[in-house]
Design a protein around this nucleic acid. Structure first.
Ligand SMILES: [Mn+2]
Ligand SMILES: [Mn+2]
Ligand SMILES: [Zn+2]
Ligand SMILES: [Zn+2]
Lengths: 142, 142
DNA sequence: AACTACATTATAATTATTCTAAACTATTGA
DNA sequence: TCAATAGTTTAGAATAATTATAATGTAGTT
């Protein structure tokens, strides 16, 4: 059940020391069936539910940024007071539910292909993200 | 040269009183050739450069939000410490230059069409935004 | 002119995030 | 084995964008 050795290897191979805080965060992030879309606050809550001793919020921030830099997490572009991260690091796009503030992965069959035809001079493309904002389809919209 | 009467009418027709602050902000935002992509700070700086008496920062925030609600401005989804707004309210997409933190409109010929094939159950689509992050194409990338 | 609803303003509050610097720990190699 | 060292964790302070507050001002109306 515990994939600690895997996580230890993963961390070590990317030059990160496998501390007990990082291993715990790996478990919370990567030991799940489905993609996890989260804010730092979501993650911290998730950790504290599953853990007796707490992890400092600064460490959660440090770790998420370290994992992002190593390519284990993606940050999703969305205008919000909070940053959103994603354990699905493949190229994919999102629905954002403005009622619940939840990100949902687009399947390939949700979208036609998005292809760039032209470049911007002297610039390289780092990412292409499609964000589809959705909300409940009620009559009484304000 | 001064389109104040136009702006006065525009404001009045949408139920906003044409105060001198709002008219000045209209001039700065809408009296230009090209699309203006800006943060609140950009706008405030722009105002203070062109104006003897200053407009309170709270008023700048209030006005931008009022204009957004009326559909005169769009807010662009981008993960940043600051919010970005756009005087181009048509459906269009953006490059974001991560070197300069500037938004640039995509022409139609920059992108293939982006079409949704499927909906999310019970939700209506509010917007579809494509964001292409670009940066300088140097060898010495960190 | 007086009334009222709306708008502006300075300032305080909020809050996500980053910074700081001291204490702690994993790793290494003598 | 164990000290040296570089990397890590932590509490708390600092930062900064944004929002809230509440007093003052003003546009539109009668
Ligand atoms: Mn913000
Ligand atoms: Mn932020
Ligand atoms: Zn995703
Ligand atoms: Zn634009």
């Amino acid at each position: 059940m515990t994939k600690n050795l895997e996580f230890t290897e993963k961390l070590r191979s990317s030059g990160l020391r496998p501390t007990k805080q990082r291993l715990k965060i790996c478990e919370v992030l990567f030991n799940r069936e489905k993609t996890f879309h989260f804010t730092i606050n979501d993650l911290a809550k998730n950790i504290s539910e599953k853990l007796k001793e707490k992890i400092s919020l600064a460490t959660v921030y440090n770790t998420v940024h370290a994992f992002k830099k190593k390519g284990y997490l993606k940050e999703i572009s969305i205008n919000s007071d909070k940053s959103y991260f994603d354990t699905n690091i493949t190229n994919h796009h999102h629905f954002f539910d403005e009622d619940t503030n939840q990100l949902i992965d687009c399947d390939d069959n949700h979208l036609d292909n998005v292809k760039i035809k032209k470049n911007i001079t002297g610039k390289k493309i780092n990412s292409i993200e499609v964000l589809i904002k959705v909300a409940s389809d009620n009559q009484n919209q304000n």
